[in-house]
Design a protein around this nucleic acid. Sequence first.
RNA 1: GCUCCUGUGGUGUAGUCCGGCUAAGCAUACUGCCCUCUCAAGGCAGUGAUCCCGGGUUCAAAUCCCGGCGGGAGCACCA
Length: 499
Amino acid sequence: MESNFPELLVVKPKQDRTGLPPLEDAEQGRVVTRFPPEPNGYPHIGHAKAAIIDEEYAKMYGGKLIFRFDDTNPENERLEYYAAIKVGLDWLGVKYDQVKNTSDDMELIYKKAEEFIQSGYAYVCTCNKETISKNRREMVSCKCSFGDLSQNIKRWNSMFEKYKPREAIVRFRGDMHSENTAMRDPTLLRIIDEPHPIHKDRYRVWPNYDFAVAIEDSVDGVTHAFRTKEYELRNELYYEILDKLKMRKPRVLEFARLEFDGMPVSKRVLKPLVQEGKVSGYDDPRLPTLEAMRRRGIVPEAIRRFVLSLSFTKSDTLAPFETLESFNRKIIDPTSIRLFMVTDPVKFAVKNNNMTEIEIQNHPQKDMGKRTVKIDGFFYVSGHDAKSLKVGDEIRLLELYNVKIVKSGPDIEAEITDNSFKPKIPKIQWVPAQNAVKIEVLIPKVLFVNEQFNENSLEIKQALTEPHYLELNVGAEIQFVRYGYCRKDSANQVIYTHK
RNA sequence: GCUCCUGUGGUGUAGUCCGGCUAAGCAUACUGCCCUCUCAAGGCAGUGAUCCCGGGUUCAAAUCCCGGCGGGAGCACCA
């Protein structure tokens, strides 16, 4: 046995792996992946997952990543979406080796379509949509599929001028009896008269997804094509198309879609929200778009680690947003300035204040400098903290001094006891009353609860913070002490990132 | 309805292809302690899974086989 079948005795070593699982048939230096979004909307977390996986695999094997706009339906596509997706990808830090548009290969696609028709693997069908879908369900062929070559060629040529949209389509000659409905003579090309965002009126016969993707992946040299698993049934078609065209076949693999609970990515759901003004736009911090997450204070590296932590599986996942937050917190913590901020402010007077200013570290560990806060004995503290204060309590105003409460109620009064640090007593943050800065804190919550729009998904809190806030740039990440991380979104508004 | 995919602690995953090396690793969440002029970060410890269920094969099964059940997707002239 050992001499005759040594390979049977070789056991592959089991070892813990980090990152994505290895790819089959992947040769170092020869892997080509691709990220093929349709420019029909703003990029979101789902795009991020796909792009990161594509890039990571290319990196893992020293290969390359092609960024390709699958823009073959002018009805949906707009120039601004091409730009938005590119901006999103760049923000994520996904590096690609080549950018292209499927629409730039139309001549090639026509050539392949003709080849298909010539060789009898496709025919032009002039039946109406209802008939076609009825035939598919009932597994019967229509008369068009029996038309001869000259008829098909004539009709094909007519698709470029005579026929109106919906009057004729090119269909793949599949198998109307196939168990796989995707194989029952699916559409390959159709007529669309809408001007294309790039090519305007130059073309009106457009390939559909299955035809375009298969050809593009093949000619682009893609070795491993990843897509979400709802496409799984179309693999047979994909391979069949390339087989008939005698073109090289990439390996297609599927992964589970990524979506957060209560945070839909579908345009069908999001568009009405934007139109009805229920969210402020596609960058509303409650949304799972990249722009929204950026505004909210989520950093690209956190998204990457998160995506990788989900691995490459086909099982349906209810993504744990808290895990993303945890990764994010660890990344932004070292660079987030610490500031004092109070919500539901309550006046707090220290009667025997004897100080005019105090110097405070901007970060407990990292050297982020110091700031000087002017004080005069009049402060604000958070309503939340004020509620628990009773006359006689001793607390410490963080970084300042210890005080004893002498009057509670709507306005609090206190007296300094001493300045020594006492670990046991409560410590609360404060804001100087004389030059407190008014800000709004936007707190995004889950958008949908039980499929219903959550009317309370955005909480807006009025708050006061230190004047030093004014010196920070928009985009700065701040940790409001004892409150949480927020990102400065504009001069007087911050967005709550997470605790 | 038909077809396909999927099912490991509260959550996300590793391990499943090639059965034993781990009666299940990591992360997150939670609890406690340490550190700390934050309820953060960091350090340490702990709770928590008979691996969907029922059979079978085997000396041995999360891993193989059979049968159930649960969840998701596709069935477009959208991608």
